[in-house]
Amino acid sequence: MKDKNISGTRYLNPYLSGVLLGLVVLLANFISGRGVRASGAIKSAIVAGAEILAPHHHGNAAFYKEYAAMHTGNPLNSWLVYQTIGVLAGVFLSGVIAGRLKLKTEHPPHITSRRRLVFALMGGILFGFGSQLGRGCTSGSALSGMAVLSLGGFISMMAIFGTAFALAYFFRKNWI
């Protein structure tokens, strides 16, 4: 199956995309001293929510202490949150230009939308939990970690892709 057959649109050359993505990570490090991240934005949102719902409850938890030390002020007023809003804007812009803006559930023809959504929810729960355990997801730990030659970045990358590859056989009916 060729790239363009899946959605009927054309995509940017992957190597060119990779170079551009690398330059963005380089720029992020040059400006802020950190690479790009994604899962941390979810954490910021939940911490902000927890502060509204239970302002004193979390005072003693090491997790929050560390978080508060790294992010002074309002959790939603952090670098990561601005970056994430930017990501959504950038994606939207590309989607508009390429004509890929469409509300739909993407799945292979032989499975139902409902099945796809149930598995998407389960996958999200696993990935969310794992990203906290692994201290960062594919963006912050694997991609940005490898860029600064962090051993954790390489281990993270191998563990994520290795496991997905090892389990691919059992989930093949969902995808091919």
């Binding site: 990203s131 692994g134 496991t163």
Partner: peptide, 15 residues
């Protein structure tokens, strides 16, 4: 964490 994320990746299709 990486193993759990990998399982999430193949189940959910995204990171």
């Amino acid at each position: 964490g990486g193993v759990v994320m990998g399982a999430g990746f193949i189940t959910g299709g995204f990171c």
